[in-house]
Design a protein around this nucleic acid. Structure first.
Lengths: 188, 188
DNA sequence: GCGCCCATGTAACTAGTTACATGATTCA
DNA sequence: TGAATCATGTAACTAGTTACATGGGCGC
């Protein structure tokens, strides 16, 4: 069985843009694609090491004045080939698990107010992400031409997904809170 | 650190509706809440065992004519207390990882047609889930009164989430395919 | 006789998180 | 001098998946 390490492909993809260190990769993830992807150091460093052994990346130590030196990784030809093959493979269906819906589903075992609170927290989170997305959009807006350069606006398409998704979540939260508040009033 | 085993709470919640076996729990998950939750045997059985040791559930062997006998688990008082506490705890933020967006994001490393194909598969999946949700809705529609019995329609609220979410995904897919097809035509 | 559903379980593995340990430089 | 940022890494753990092993009963 082919084992698929999604983190590996995420790192290879980022390195296909430019050589980066483990620290850089984490920063890039957190700042640019955090709304649909995350990584942590405890996973990044071991995977980089493994990829170096397999010659998918090469390591170079870089010294910058006034900063600790760092290990910068570059993707190799072999790495690029592997990345391309992964991009062509079908997307694995990952059944997502929504803890908040599990709590709503078991709502009978707790108070309506508790559930309303949980949904409200979800709403606030969705709003916060939407704000964040708007900021990223503004930021890439000013670099649009350099970044896209006549090619498909892939970053923008990802941002769109975020907007569609979190807007839908916010709407559901509003509707749900409304329904639950009416239920609560009925009880009184 | 308090360790949180979400599967454990999912199982406890389901057992709070009625006593079930490992097999029943899997069936329930697949048939009723698969659009936002999943479990597999390799996780269910060990967790049930662990919960029995901790006296959160009790096991009884049930014999049914013409069927293999099965181990039916019931939630205990202690289990109910733990479930309530979990329901009141804040929802843990689980950053979801969307493989399809990762592929879109790395679109420059492959062909537009490949990306269009991936998005199209996503669209078909969303449509299929929407159909499935409609079927579940129809099914619970006929049992509405018994199930909800004047209490908040929690199942329905979960279904609504699914509808909002997959409709949003389908819309994004349509829009994205449209944009990418125009890009492809530009290239020719 | 075959395929499907019922039913339970383990072993091996892949994936991902959290906590800890360490230490440099910059800036207020 | 202390907080923030830069930078790398390991150990221990939690979570989740896949494959395998086993076997009975039902309906066509």
């Amino acid at each position: 069985m082919a084992r698929i390490n999604t983190t590996q492909y995420a790192l290879l993809g980022m390195l296909s843009f430019q050589p980066m260190s483990g620290y850089d990769l984490k920063k890039f993830t957190d700042r640019s694609i955090s709304f649909f992807w995350s990584e942590n150091y405890g996973h990044i460093y071991p995977v980089l090491k493994k990829m170096e052994e397999q010659k998918l990346v090469t390591k170079h130590t870089m010294h910058t004045e006034g900063k600790p030196s760092k290990n910068v990784y570059s993707i190799t030809k072999k790495g690029q080939t592997l990345l391309s093959r992964w991009l062509e493979a079908p997307v694995r269906k990952r059944i997502f698990r929504l803890e908040v819906l599990l709590k709503v589903f078991f709502g009978y075992r707790t108070s309506i107010d508790n559930i309303i609170g949980k949904v409200d927290a979800e709403r606030e989170n969705a709003q916060a992400v939407l704000t964040e997305l708007a900021e990223i959009e503004q930021h890439i807006g000013s670099h649009q031409h350099e970044a896209e350069n006549g090619r498909p606006p892939y970053m923008r398409l990802c941002l769109n997904y975020g907007k569609y998704f979190y807007r839908a979540v916010a709407q559901w939260c509003d509707e749900t809170i409304d329904i639950l508040q009416k239920e609560r009033n009925k009880e009184e």
